[in-house]
Simulated scan of single mutants.
Amino acid sequence: MRSSRALSSIGPVHPGEHLAEFLDELEITQYRLAKDISVHPRRINQIVKGERAITADTALRLARYFGTSPEFWMNLQDHYDIDKARAALGGRLESEVKPHVA
């Protein structure tokens, strides 16, 4: 797992990059994947290009197809979303949100 320092230098990695790696390693085209998991090819293309998030529906389909868990795909998406939000907030989080003291 990358450190937060590594994230700041290269930015968050969209889950589509991981999906593209799976496809490359297994020599599967985006079109073949889309047909095999019964989704429109555009959905896969948009995910691979980082233009679309992985939904629970897509995570379930990818998990069944690749023999992974749906949580694997959802965690990739969640980590990406959190990293993007952290980068967008920058230092404002510490100044705008004061921790609750019991």
Rank of each mutant, 00 (worst) to 15 (best):
M1S: 15
R2G: 11
S3L: 08
S4K: 15
S4C: 08
S4D: 12
R5I: 14
S8G: 15
I10C: 12
I10Y: 10
I10E: 11
G11F: 04
H14I: 02
P15R: 01
G16Q: 00
G16K: 00
G16V: 00
L19V: 08
L19W: 02
E21L: 04
E21R: 09
F22M: 13
F22E: 11
L23D: 09
L23T: 03
L23C: 09
D24S: 12
E25S: 10
L26A: 12
L26F: 13
L26K: 15
E27V: 10
I28Y: 09
T29I: 01
T29V: 02
Q30A: 02
Q30F: 00
Y31D: 13
Y31Q: 10
Y31M: 06
I37E: 01
I37S: 02
I37G: 03
S38P: 03
S38L: 07
H40D: 11
H40E: 09
P41D: 09
P41Y: 03
R42V: 04
R43D: 00
I44M: 00
I44L: 09
N45M: 01
I47N: 03
I47H: 00
K49T: 00
G50W: 02
G50S: 03
R52F: 02
T55Q: 01
T55C: 04
T55G: 07
A56V: 15
D57I: 09
D57N: 13
A59Q: 07
A59G: 05
L60T: 09
R61V: 01
R61G: 08
L62R: 05
A63L: 05
G67Q: 08
G67D: 07
G67M: 06
T68C: 12
T68Y: 05
P70M: 02
E71Q: 14
F72K: 06
W73F: 13
W73D: 02
W73Q: 07
M74Y: 03
M74E: 10
M74P: 03
N75P: 04
L76C: 02
Q77D: 06
D78V: 12
D78A: 13
D78G: 06
H79M: 09
I82Q: 12
I82G: 07
D83Q: 14
D83E: 15
K84N: 07
A87V: 14
A87H: 09
A88G: 11
A88L: 10
A88W: 07
A88D: 10
G90W: 10
G90M: 01
G91D: 11
E94C: 05
S95K: 15
S95R: 13
S95F: 11
S95Q: 10
V97L: 13
V97Q: 08
V97E: 11
V97C: 11
V97I: 10
K98A: 13
K98T: 12
P99C: 09
P99I: 06
H100Y: 12
A102V: 11
A102C: 12
A102G: 12
